[in-house]
Amino acid sequence: TTTLTYTDEEEARKAAEELKRRGITFTYTKRGGTWEIRIK
């Protein structure tokens, strides 16, 4: 499992869109002031 952490929502959203485009499965979690993208 790879976890990407972002403090900028815009960056996190761009990363999530890129992963979706590649067909990669991930979970997206907001934790306080950070956003976590966990790639399975």
Rank of each mutant, 00 (worst) to 15 (best):
T1M: 13
T5G: 02
G33W: 05
E36T: 07
G32K: 08
T3Y: 10
A12K: 01
Y6I: 02
T34Q: 13
T2L: 15
L19G: 00
E36V: 14
K30I: 07
A15M: 15
I39C: 04
L19Y: 04
T25V: 11
W35F: 10
A12L: 04
T29N: 08
I24M: 05
T29Y: 09
E18A: 09
T25N: 13
G33H: 10
A15P: 00
T7P: 04
T1Y: 15
F26P: 01
T7Y: 13
T27R: 03
F26D: 00
E36L: 11
T34Y: 15
L4I: 10
R13C: 13
R21I: 08
K14A: 13
T34A: 11
I39M: 04
K14M: 10
R21Q: 08
T27N: 05
D8G: 04
R21M: 08
A15H: 06
T29K: 07
T27S: 09
T34N: 11
I39Q: 02
Y6W: 03
I39N: 01
T7I: 08
T2R: 13
K40N: 14
R22L: 14
K14Q: 11
G33E: 15
E17M: 11
A12D: 00
T2M: 13
F26W: 01
K30M: 06
E11S: 13
I24G: 01
R31L: 14
E18Q: 09
R13L: 14
Y28R: 02
I24W: 04
R13T: 08
G32V: 05
G33L: 12
G33Q: 11
I37Y: 01
E18S: 10
T34D: 04
R38Y: 09
L4C: 15
T7H: 12
K14H: 09
G32N: 14
R31T: 14
W35Q: 01
T25M: 11
T27E: 14
E11F: 04
K14F: 07
T2E: 08
R22T: 04
T5I: 15
T34C: 11
E36W: 05
E36I: 15
I37A: 00
T27K: 04
Y28V: 15
R22C: 13
T1P: 09
L19F: 10
T34E: 09
E17I: 11
R13E: 07
T1R: 10
R31H: 12
R22G: 04
